[in-house]
Design a protein around this nucleic acid. Structure first.
Lengths: 144, 144
DNA sequence: TCTCATTTCGGAATCATTCCAGTTTGTGCT
DNA sequence: AGCACAAACTGGAATGATTCCGAAATGAGA
C-alpha cells in the first residue's frame, strides 16, 4: 500500500487533524492523476486550477510542503538551497545530515545492502534518495 | 586517483585546451582546500576572493559549471530546477532521463548491484547519485 | 449557528543562478 | 617581445522557484 490513492490521502488528512478543503482535494486529484509524472508545483497548480474554482500558487506550495512533512508524499528535492560540489568522482553515497548539513562520502562495497549502510557509518537514515542520471531507452532510440 | 588535487586539475585544464587564469587557480585552491566540505558557489567565491585579487561571482558560477561539464568535479545537484514530488513512498531509485526529464521509479531488489540496474531497465547511466538523508552520529549525540 | 484556529490569498521579498554586453587577458604565432 | 583573437572575466540586470506576510475566508467541532 505505498502508491498514493485519493481516499487514503483523505483519510490521512483526517487522522492528522488537517482540514479537508476544496483546494486540497483539487491538489490531491492532481497528485493522483499525475502520479507517474512526478509532478512539480507548477503542474499541480495548473491541474488543480481546473478542478477548484480558486487555487493560488502559494496554497499549492504550502500544501505540498504540508503533505510532504506529514509523510503523504515524498519531495524529490530536499532543503538544500545552494548547489554543492564534490571533488570525489568515484561512485559513492553522500550521507547528508538533516541537521548540520554535513555531507559524508560513503564508498559503496561491491554488494550494496542499503539498510546496512546506516549501521556501518553510525548514520541514521530517515530518507533515502538514489538517483541514476542518464538516458532512458525511449530517448536512446531517438536520434540526437 | 579519484580525489581532487591541484596539479591534476591544472593538467586536465591544459589537456582540454582550457586557459589557466588566476581566477581558475583561486577556484581550484578553494575547491581543493575545502574538498571535505562539499562547498557551494558562495563558499568557493569567498575563499577564492582571498587568493585572487578579483573574482566575480559570475565567474565562480561559470567556472564551476565548466569544471563539472568537463568532469573535473561533480555537481551535487543536477539541472532540475523545479522541485518534484513522488507519491511512491517505498524505497526505490528514480531513474531520471537527462534528455526528456522522465523519472522512472525502479524498485530495488534485496541485493542491489548498481551496475546491473542499467541493463535491467534499459537505461544508460551516465551519472549516479545516491543520497541517504538522516542524522550523522555527531548530531545524534547532541541534544535537541 | 457560532467560534476560532486553520487555510487561503496574492503580492512582495528572497535567493541561487543565469544572462548579457562590454572589457580584459591567456596563448599560440611571428 | 609584440600581435591577434578566441576565451574568460565582470557586474549588474533578469529569471524563476520558493517563501513570507498580513489580511480575508472558511472548515469543523461545540
Amino acid at each position: 500500500m505505498r502508491k498514493i490513492n485519493k481516499e487514503n490521502l483523505i483519510d490521512q488528512l483526517k487522522q492528522k487533524g488537517l482540514k479537508i478543503t476544496p483546494q486540497r482535494l483539487a491538489i490531491i486529484d492532481a497528485l493522483v492523476e499525475n502520479r507517474h509524472a512526478h509532478p512539480g508545483a507548477t503542474l499541480i497548480y495548473n491541474e488543480a486550477s481546473k478542478k477548484a474554482k480558486r487555487v493560488s500558487l502559494s496554497t499549492v506550495y504550502a500544501t505540498l510542503k504540508e503533505f510532504s512533512e506529514s509523510g503523504l508524499i515524498k519531495q524529490l528535492e530536499f532543503d538544500r538551497m545552494e548547489n554543492r560540489y564534490d571533488g570525489d568522482l568515484s561512485e559513492h553515497i553522500n550521507l547528508i545530515c538533516k541537521r548540520c548539513g554535513t555531507i559524508i562520502d560513503y564508498h559503496i562495497p561491491a554488494t550494496l545492502e542499503p539498510k546496512d549502510i546506516a549501521r556501518k557509518a553510525g548514520f541514521v537514515v530517515t530518507d533515502t534518495r538514489m538517483e541514476f542520471h542518464g538516458y532512458c531507452c525511449d530517448c536512446l532510440k531517438r536520434p540526437g
